[in-house]
Nucleic acid binder design. Structure first.
Lengths: 244, 244
DNA sequence: GTTTGTCTGTAACATCATGCAACAAAATCA
DNA sequence: TGATTTTGTTGCATGATGTTACAGACAAAC
């Protein structure tokens, strides 16, 4: 599992986009959905690791949707609701949801829950996010997350822009795993590529090009950021992580 | 806040010490406690950033303790319990705990929760400076809160204006945490940015620029006060705090 | 081997956020 | 009060970032 892919289901556009953006800022790929049909479409279109499902979906009912989804799939689901009454909560659990959280919730608490559920669901996967990781080494390069500095093999600090740094981090967290443009864009919260809002999408290509020009010895023959034609890009070297 | 100080409350000696040791190995200051009396003593004795509270405390009841503590203090609390039944969980949340974790838990998950709660506590309250902290050291600099003096790495005192000092304090209280202009403006009570009255908002930018010109060696390439494009600013170095 | 269509690299451009100097207003001090 | 310092505002320069266009690379079909 490269980057967790979450579905944010809420019929209120504002809430939906806010949640989506917040999750993206925290390293997840978040895909906004407004209806059950949307959910099914997304699930059909690709891997989904977790669904954040609002209980009050206008005319549709989140709990019922949850039950129906669970009958077919094994996707982890967190129910979100403005109703915190006990029976509502119980109904949530009985529907098979993995967790239940009441609005208004603390954003960090939401993240903790999301991570907890993902972790539980993940057992088999080898890719773990260690939030305490502070330094990454790869091919002689060093990235110090705390200072947000990139040091070349020659020991020189290289200035990367915000986006470039973000891109690098995404790859460092997922070495040897090909990432699609959509995944990268979602992780970086780039307006343009994936998600629901359309832009006309070569932003990631250009960004990769810029990063290459700064960290590849021969940008024309990339040794680190390799192109996976038809798919996306991969960081093709081992990454060593150090704690803080 | 230099190193988070945690209270580990559990009446079972073995569990208590194991947890304490584990947290210490992971960079926290962990103080074992066996009773509510202990907790109060520790809180009285000095800053406590988070309490890990076992729900089953022999004759005492963790949830009740939690409620009582919350009534008086604003210390973040994570409830730990062997009971994972739903109603227990709910009682935990209703008691005002910041999070809830069931035994047996995954150690990494525990760490993640602890960090999440600490981070949140920092975000919400850290714009307030702790009275007990008198000196801050960062990147060779020293800020003496009592005398309100800033000393450069070379040992020279640097004159900062009131606003500049205020800005510095806000960052010192929140190292490595990106702050938005709104947050900063709110903390400084600047008329202009976030508040309610509208001004035309570049006050914080300019203020940051002024502070940079006084404390950055190369203001053009800030090492301390970094820009987070699209977000705000971060203090990108560790801060060591000293008591009074 | 050549053709053909698609995918990728990248220069050039457009747009927008930020840095900053200069000015104006406000506060402080003598 | 008048001088001086501090602080907020404005406009412009700069740099970062997304978009577009086009050329070259690649793969499949011929």
């Amino acid at each position: 599992m490269a980057i967790p892919r979450l579905l944010v289901v809420d019929d209120d556009t504002e809430t939906r986009m806010m949640l989506t953006q917040y999750l993206r800022q925290n390293g997840f790929i978040a895909l906004p959905c407004a209806s059950e049909a949307d959910i099914r479409a997304q699930i059909g279109a690709g891997r989904i690791d977790l669904i954040l499902l609002d209980v009050m979906l206008g005319d549709e009912n989140g709990v019922e949707i949850c039950t129906r989804l669970r009958a077919k799939q094994d996707v982890p689901i967190i129910l979100v609701s403005a109703l915190s009454a006990d029976h509502q909560r119980m109904a949530g659990y009985e529907s098979g949801a993995d967790d239940y959280i009441a609005k208004p919730f603390n954003p960090d608490l939401l993240l903790a829950r999301v991570r907890a559920v993902l972790q539980r669901a993940r057992r088999s996967s080898s890719l773990i996010y260690r939030r305490s990781v502070a330094t990454f080494r790869f091919a002689g390069w060093t990235y110090d997350a705390k200072r947000d500095e990139v040091i070349s093999p020659a020991g020189v600090q290289v200035a990367l822009s915000r986006r470039e740094t973000g891109l690098l981090k995404v790859f460092l967290a997922n070495p040897h795993i090909p990432l699609t443009r959509e995944e990268i864009a979602a992780a970086l919260d780039v307006t343009g590529e994936g998600g629901s809002d359309e832009g006309s999408g070569r932003a990631i290509d250009v960004l990769v090009g810029r990063l290459r020009s700064k960290i590849e010895q021969t940008p024309k023959e990339p040794k680190l950021l390799r192109t996976e034609r038809g798919t996306g890009y991969v960081l093709a070297v081992d990454v060593e992580t150090g704690g803080d």
